[in-house]
Computed example of a mutant assay.
Amino acid sequence: MAIAAGGRVSAAAGEAEARGFFAKFVAAQNAHDVTGVKAMLWNSPDMLWYGRGVETRGPDAVADRFKEYYQGTWHLEPDMSQFRATVISSDVMQILVPIVFTRGLPGQPSQDNKFLISQTLVHDANGWHVASIMPIANTQLK
């Protein structure tokens, strides 16, 4: 972890780390790599994905949900020019990024939808992990 004087993550270093971690997370998603995605999730029953009115908790349940989506069309295209990371503490960051999701059920036509994704990242002895995923329909960062 890049650390500034006093043991704190600098804003620039934090954003660079979050950007790199998020790029790996998106690559695993686009490869439909359930094992890789699950390894990037926070290993806690409090890990949360809230989307489409459904609360999914824990890395096993979240990975299972992704596995269902991967049976159809599922592709993420983040707008990294709009990527924002906020360092909350030396082991917690919040990111926001607009993403176009191309998704569709197996055998059905896909559609594109744009969401603003909010993720909380936590750092432990094994590196960064996704602690929460919250898609927001309003994608305009102001």
Rank of each mutant, 00 (worst) to 15 (best):
I3K: 05
G6W: 01
R8H: 12
V9C: 00
S10T: 15
A12E: 14
A12W: 04
A13S: 14
G14D: 06
A18W: 02
R19T: 10
G20D: 11
A23F: 01
A27K: 01
A27S: 09
A28T: 02
Q29F: 02
A31Q: 10
H32N: 13
T35V: 12
G36A: 07
G36M: 02
K38A: 14
A39S: 13
A39T: 10
M47I: 07
L48N: 04
R52M: 10
R52G: 15
R57H: 09
R57G: 09
R65G: 12
R65V: 06
K67C: 11
Y70P: 11
T73H: 03
W74Q: 05
H75S: 10
E77D: 14
E77M: 12
P78W: 10
I88M: 07
S89F: 03
S89L: 00
S90A: 10
M93H: 06
I95R: 00
P98G: 13
P98A: 14
I99N: 08
V100I: 15
G104L: 05
P106C: 11
P106K: 04
P109Q: 04
Q111R: 08
K114W: 01
S118G: 11
S118H: 07
Q119T: 13
Q119D: 13
H123Q: 07
G127C: 09
G127Q: 08
G127W: 04
W128C: 12
V130K: 01
S132M: 03
I133R: 01
P135D: 00
P135Q: 01
I136Y: 04
N138G: 08
N138I: 09
T139F: 01
K142G: 15
